[in-house]
Amino acid sequence: VTTYKLVINGKTLKGETTTKAVDAETAEKAFKQYANDNGVDAVWTYDDATKTFTVTEMV
């Protein structure tokens, strides 16, 4: 189990959160659900070296 981080650069929601998951795909599903629940529709990137997902909402 690995800890993954999500950085949110949204128009109305900004911040960071983490989740523990067995792999990046599982973490991504959890983070996308979190973003969807909070109304963030954005572009996703992932950095495997830092285990960090970044979501940037387009203006």
Rank of each mutant, 00 (worst) to 15 (best):
T12V: 11
A24M: 13
T2S: 10
A30V: 14
K14P: 06
N9P: 04
V22I: 12
Y34I: 09
A42I: 09
A42P: 07
V1Q: 11
G39R: 05
N38E: 07
F31P: 00
T19A: 07
D23K: 03
V22N: 07
Q33Y: 05
D47P: 00
A30D: 05
Y46Q: 00
V22K: 11
E25T: 10
Y46M: 00
A49Q: 09
F31C: 02
Y4F: 10
V7A: 03
T17V: 14
K5C: 07
G15M: 14
D47T: 03
G39K: 07
T54L: 05
T3R: 04
T54D: 01
Q33K: 13
W44S: 00
K5Q: 04
K20R: 12
T19I: 15
D41A: 09
E57V: 09
T2W: 11
A35P: 02
K11H: 13
T26Q: 11
N38D: 06
Y46K: 00
V40P: 06
T18R: 05
T18V: 08
K5E: 02
T2Y: 14
F31I: 02
T18F: 14
G15D: 09
T12D: 09
V1S: 08
T12R: 08
D23W: 02
T17Y: 15
V59G: 12
K11V: 13
K11N: 10
F53K: 00
A30W: 15
A21I: 02
V40D: 04
V7F: 05
D23I: 02
D48C: 04
F31Q: 00
G10S: 13
D23G: 02
M58W: 11
K20A: 09
Y34F: 12
E57C: 12
M58H: 10
T45D: 08
A21V: 03
A49Y: 08
K20C: 12
T26W: 05
G39I: 14
E16H: 09
T17C: 15
T50W: 02
V55G: 04
F31H: 00
I8A: 03
T17N: 04
K20I: 13
T54V: 05
T56C: 07
L6Y: 01
G39W: 14
D41H: 11
G10D: 04
K51M: 05
V7M: 04
I8K: 01
W44Y: 02
T45C: 07
T19P: 01
V40W: 15
V1K: 11
T45P: 00
A35K: 04
Q33S: 08
V40C: 10
A27H: 00
N9S: 08
V7P: 00
Y46D: 00
D47N: 08
M58I: 13
Q33W: 05
V59P: 12
A24H: 09
D47F: 02
D48L: 04
V22G: 06
G39A: 08
T50P: 00
N36P: 07
A24L: 09
K14G: 07
A27T: 01
A24K: 15
V55K: 03
V40L: 14
A21L: 02
T45F: 09
V59R: 08
T26K: 04
T17H: 14
T45G: 04
K29S: 06
A24C: 14
G15T: 14
T56M: 07
V7Y: 06
T19E: 03
T50D: 03
G15I: 15
T17E: 05
Y34H: 04
K14T: 09
V40M: 11
A24Q: 11
E57M: 10
I8N: 01
W44C: 02
A49H: 08
K14N: 12
F31L: 04
T54P: 00
Q33N: 06
A49K: 09
T56H: 07
L6V: 03
T54Y: 13
K29H: 07
E57Y: 13
G39E: 06
G15Y: 15
W44K: 00
T45M: 07
D37S: 11
T54R: 04
D47S: 04
D23V: 02
V1W: 14
A42G: 15
T2I: 13
N36K: 14
T56W: 11
K32Q: 07
T56E: 07
E25R: 11
W44D: 00
D37R: 11
T52P: 00
T18W: 14
W44H: 00
T18M: 09
V7E: 03
L6A: 02
T50K: 06
T19M: 14
V1F: 13
A35Y: 15
N38P: 06
E25Y: 11
K51C: 03
T2A: 09
V59D: 13
G15S: 13
G39L: 15
N9K: 10
A24I: 09
N38C: 15
T3L: 12
T2M: 10
V40Q: 05
Y4T: 01
I8D: 01
V22A: 10
T2R: 09
T3E: 11
V55T: 04
W44Q: 00
A42V: 08
L6K: 01
E25V: 10
E28A: 13
K14E: 06
A35V: 15
E16M: 12
D37A: 13
V7T: 03
K20M: 13
K32I: 08
A24R: 14
T2V: 11
K51P: 00
A21W: 04
G15W: 15
E28Y: 15
V22S: 09
K51E: 01
W44G: 00
Y4G: 01
V1C: 14
Q33F: 06
V43L: 09
Q33E: 08
M58F: 12
L13C: 15
V59M: 10
T19K: 04
K20S: 10
A49P: 05
A35G: 03
G10W: 14
T18Q: 08
D47G: 01
A21S: 04
K29T: 06
Y4W: 04
D37I: 14
E16F: 14
A21H: 02
D41C: 12
Y46P: 00
D41G: 07
T52F: 01
N38H: 14
E16V: 13
K20Q: 13
A49E: 10
K20G: 04
N38G: 06
K51T: 02
A27P: 01
T12Y: 14
K51H: 09
G15L: 15
G15V: 15
L6H: 01
Y46F: 04
T50G: 03
Y4V: 02
D47E: 05
M58L: 13
A30E: 11
V7W: 03
M58G: 10
